[in-house]
């Protein structure tokens, strides 16, 4: 009996949390936007986007290079090493680009957001904003949300592009795949709408999810040191799992067999 009671209680609790999170998102996004907050948003793009560039570029480069290495060893058995180009490109554009970027983003930027907002809550900065008749949702949450939504697809595109270049370096310069066929077969196979844009759509959806989770966890964190560390870990774990689950759903929708 106890199991069911607990299950019911947990479910209700989670539903309440989702409702709370939706209210927070609504309040942050759909209030009338103020031009005054644009400098704040730009600063947040710097914090979330620019400062993630290094990890994204390095990861993209190495993943592209590893893919080319691994792909070559398998394709060469079928005499199909010319297809290395489209293999690297499609894997990155459709899957690895959006997903790995989102995971890295959740780990780096997401956790930082949760910790920052949780700390602002703990030191009563959010309360004092409210008492000064400034809506903390519009002033603190919204700029970070929009900055992240802008940064995520940008980072994903950079990841894929750098990965493809990395694949070129390993495949063409090192392993001897023909440069011409690397690019031309890729061009013949990769499609703008179907592959590149779908990948971008994925990264936008992942960005929304990561930011929503990170901001809400920070906003609703218990204002103690354990509370904040718990919220930060939860952001990374929940975001990562949601990204992977959503990836499956989106892939089935976009690339699935009709």
């Amino acid at each position: 009996m106890n199991v069911f009671v607990n299950l019911g209680a947990t479910t209700l609790h989670k539903l309440q949390a989702i409702g709370n999170a939706s209210l927070m998102l609504w309040g942050a996004l759909f209030a009338v936007p103020r031009l005054k907050n644009i400098p704040l948003t730009i600063y947040q793009i710097y914090v979330l986007g620019v400062q993630s560039l290094l990890i994204i570029i390095v990861s993209g480069l190495f993943i592209g290079m590893v893919m080319a290495l691994q792909g070559y060893t398998i394709l060469v058995n079928y005499g199909a090493e010319g297809s290395l180009g489209p293999m690297v490109a499609l894997s990155l554009l459709r899957e690895l680009g959006p997903v790995v970027t989102a995971l890295l983003f959740a780990g780096r930027a997401g956790s930082a957001l949760t910790a920052e907002i949780g700390l602002m809550k703990a030191t009563e900065q959010l309360s004092s904003l409210e008492m000064m008749a400034v809506d903390p949702l519009r002033r603190v949450i919204a700029p970070r949300f929009w900055a992240g939504m802008i940064s995520m697809p940008m980072l994903a595109i950079i990841f894929s592009a750098v990965g493809i270049l990395g694949g070129h370096v390993v495949g063409v310069d090192w392993l001897g795949v023909d440069a011409g066929s690397y690019w031309s077969i890729m061009q013949a196979t990769v499609e703008w709408e179907a592959d590149v844009l779908n990948g971008v759509i994925k990264s936008v959806v992942f960005g929304l999810v990561v930011l929503w989770i990170a901001l809400y966890k920070g906003y609703s964190a218990i204002p103690t040191s354990e509370g904040i560390s718990k919220a930060t870990t939860e952001t990374v774990v929940v975001s990562s799992l949601t990204i992977l689950g959503l990836d499956f759903v989106l892939t089935a929708l976009m690339f699935g067999v009709n």
Binding site: T123, S128, M131, A133
Partner: peptide, 19 residues
């Protein structure tokens, strides 16, 4: 409420300055 809040202010225990 936001307009009324401009007439009052609160000094928090920790000061709550924006760090």
């Amino acid at each position: 409420l936001y307009e009324v809040r401009r007439k009052m202010s609160m000094l928090f225990q920790s000061g709550a300055l924006f760090t």
